[in-house]
């Protein structure tokens, strides 16, 4: 393969892998918009959602990997996650409504531990194959570059979800209410906005979004209870770089991080594959020094 072909291949692979990180980052942005906090359990909830989907899909249409079973499983997973997110907000996070921010974040870390353990208890810690209905191993060849069907589906799905979310935030009444709650919940309530309901909806949507990402990831590799633990690191880096209030920023940052990481691994010999995980952290560090609100985030101006 010629050097240019290698470069393009790195870009293409980075875009697909990065969209998984981007999807989780989107979910984190969504929760942050609804409740003003970062949910460390976002990945764990996503994994739980996809196990539920797999189980329901197999129950409805026995025989692993039938297309209809997988599709029904995805639909079930999304619905289950909507409910799961809402329930977690209503019955767990709501109890910490008046608590310090740090306490809430620790609560989500506890939630992550709980969910991961629960998933392991029910489904075991061995990797479970997740069927992919588009035929995961097939790929298109363009010159030297091969693009897997999985990459195309993943990238398209995540970009579509990002656009929908951006429209939801900026162009609908639901999004306006959500942003009002994120900005100042007590004041939003004075305008008659049902803060609790919007928060539940935000958590539910975020959980569903995360589950879509988890299913896409699992259909490439496999499903394990800890599937998203490492990915959470990238998603958080993307959120910090892209800005906690910007869906587009989060996805673009996730793609950028992944591509930079794989380029650094390939072209900077002393980084290589062993040290590439450092790349997102260095990026976060630099961005926080130069632009603390993130590259796409709105600057919080306070005038007294």
């Amino acid at each position: 393969m010629n050097p240019f072909g290698t470069f393009i291949q790195l870009l293409v692979d980075g875009l697909a892998q990065g969209s998984i990180y981007g999807a989780l980052a989107l979910a984190i942005v969504l929760v942050n918009q609804a409740t003003g906090l970062v949910n460390f359990a976002q990945g764990g909830m996503a994994v739980l959602g996809s196990y539920i989907g797999l189980t329901i899909g197999n129950l409805l249409i026995p025989g692993v990997g039938s297309t209809l079973g997988v599709v029904l499983g995805i639909v079930a997973a999304v619905i289950a996650s909507l409910a799961l997110g809402g329930v977690v907000e209503r019955f767990v996070m709501r109890r910490f409504e008046r608590a310090e921010e740090d306490t809430k974040v620790v609560a989500t870390i506890g939630l992550l531990t709980l969910i991961t353990g629960l998933v392991g208890l029910i489904w075991g810690f061995n990797p479970t194959p997740y069927p992919f209905f588009f035929g995961g191993s097939e790929s298109l060849r363009i010159g030297d570059v091969s693009i897997s069907v999985w990459s195309i589906v993943t990238f398209t799905t995540i970009v579509a979800l990002m656009v929908v979310l951006q429209i939801l935030f900026r162009g609908t009444k639901f999004g306006l209410g959500m942003r009002a709650v994120a900005d100042n919940a007590p004041s939003a309530a004075l305008a008659g906005i049902r803060v609790g309901g919007l928060r539940m909806a935000g958590w539910g949507l975020a959980a569903a979004l995360g589950t879509v990402a988890a299913i896409l990831l699992a259909s490439k590799s496999q499903l394990t209870p800890n599937n998203f633990d490492g990915i959470l690191v990238y998603a958080l880096a993307a959120v910090v770089i892209g800005g906690l209030d910007s869906p587009i920023g989060a996805v673009v940052a996730a793609l950028g991080i992944t591509i930079l990481e794989s380029l650094a691994a390939a072209y900077i010999p002393w980084i290589g594959h062993d040290l590439k995980v450092v790349v997102p952290f260095v990026l976060v560090f630099v961005v926080l020094i130069i632009r603390p609100q993130g590259l796409f985030g709105r600057r919080a101006v306070v005038r007294v």
């Binding site: 009444k173 306006l176 209410g177 942003r179 009002a180 994120a182 900005d183 100042n184 007590p186 004041s187 939003a188 004075l190 305008a191 008659g192 906005i193 209030d245 709105r298 919080a300 101006v301 306070v302």
Partner: peptide, 26 residues
């Protein structure tokens, strides 16, 4: 009943127009 709270309660990250639309939310 519309309450203008102490400290005004304007939504800082929203534009002036968006603040007005939040007022008309219901």
């Amino acid at each position: 009943i519309a309450h203008v709270p102490e400290g005004r309660g304007t939504l800082g990250n929203l534009t002036v127009r968006e603040n007005l639309m939040v007022g008309a939310y219901l």
